[in-house]
């Protein structure tokens, strides 16, 4: 059963990842990204990370991909990009070499050091029928005892990101010109 779940999750992840880099249409690439993210969530569940699986689906599959699709639709860049032509001649073979080299190097390191992977911590609580919230409790205990300062700093980071994005996405310079027509149409709509 575990093997079956792993194979299904791995197939979802790899199909989605190949889809992201092969599909020429940005919307199709975003939908392939959803497939990959859901596959990662499946493998999170298979490894007793139930809370992270839920957060993965909500934050990544819900918020981030919707943000991508929103930007694609907003900017109107949703036309297929021709992948037949290769602007820089040697780029794709070099990229393939880099990819295979990365897999080879990281895979070699993983296979060589696999004997050192043995439990040394307190263990991950497995969710059972009686204690179905054990993963959330364990994660919360660690988060709010050992990492509480980092958790607080995270809120500062989010505020900075929101303020920075508002400043970036505002149309500079033309604010006075673009505000005036909107104000006039607003008053017109109000009077009629």
């Amino acid at each position: 059963m575990q093997l079956f779940v792993f194979i299904c999750g791995a197939a979802m992840i790899l199909l989605g990842a190949v889809g992201v880099i092969v599909r020429s249409h940005p919307v199709h690439a975003a939908l392939s990204l959803v497939l990959t993210l859901f596959g990662v969530a499946v493998l999170f569940v298979a490894q007793d990370a139930h809370f992270l699986a839920a957060v993965q689906v909500i934050v990544y599959g819900g918020a981030i991909v919707v943000l991508f699709l929103f930007v694609i639709m907003l900017l109107g860049v949703d036309r297929a990009e021709s992948l037949r032509i290769d602007p820089v001649k040697v780029q794709r073979p070099l990229a393939a070499i880099v990819g295979l080299g990365l897999v080879g190097l990281i895979g070699g390191a993983i296979v060589q050091s696999r004997s050192t992977l043995r439990p040394r911590g307190d263990g991950i609580a497995t969710a059972t029928q009686a204690r179905h919230d054990s993963n959330i409790k364990q994660l919360a205990n660690d988060l709010f005892s050992n990492h509480v300062f980092a958790f607080e700093i995270t809120s500062v980071l989010l505020v900075i990101a929101v303020v920075g994005t508002v400043l970036l996405a505002r149309r500079p310079g033309r604010s006075g010109a673009s505000d005036a027509p909107q104000a006039s149409t607003g008053t017109k709509a109000g009077t009629t």
Binding site: A49, P119, D122, Q138, L139, D142
Partner: peptide, 11 residues
């Protein structure tokens, strides 16, 4: 986190 039995990975 699963292999080493440490919840810090999930955090």
């Amino acid at each position: 986190a699963k292999a080493l039995g440490d919840i810090g990975g999930q955090t």
